[in-house]
């Protein structure tokens, strides 16, 4: 039973990871940009809970007010399109994003 549960967990994490590559890294290939975005969210929202919430709300309904990017950048490139991912998948993707790029785990 335990073995089965462990197997499912590993499989699902692999599946999620590949989904993250497919849904996110496909466009955002550059780690540097992802790092910059995480820094901006961390500077504005501080905690994991608030950062994830802010990212989720922005991706679901992107507006100028919710964006953490500088105004000049938004004026030039515009606001991104609304996500087509369902809530659960989006949350999973955000979790993976936070796990890989959060600043807290990089402090030593």
């Amino acid at each position: 039973m335990v073995k089965t549960a462990l197997l499912i967990l590993i499989l699902s994490s692999f599946l999620n990871a590949s989904l993250f590559e497919e849904e996110c890294l496909y466009c955002h290939t550059n780690d540097f940009k992802f790092n910059m975005m995480m820094k901006k969210y961390t500077t504005k929202y501080s905690s994991e809970k608030r950062i994830k919430k802010a990212i989720f709300e922005y991706l679901k309904n992107p507006t100028k007010d919710k964006s953490v990017l500088p105004l000049g950048y938004i004026n030039r490139f515009g606001i991104k399109d609304e996500t087509f991912l369902d809530d659960k998948t989006l949350r999973d993707m955000i979790d993976i994003y936070y796990k890989q790029f959060n600043l807290k785990s990089k402090i030593y």
Partner: peptide, 27 residues
């Protein structure tokens, strides 16, 4: 800094800690 990792400042005359907005310990 655009480092891969961040070395937390350690000083001789005092110690420190940082907490996030929800008062969870960061370091």
């Amino acid at each position: 800094d655009n480092n891969e990792r961040y070395e937390y400042p350690r000083l001789d005359n005092f110690n420190s800690a940082i907490y996030d907005i929800d008062k969870n310990l960061i370091f």
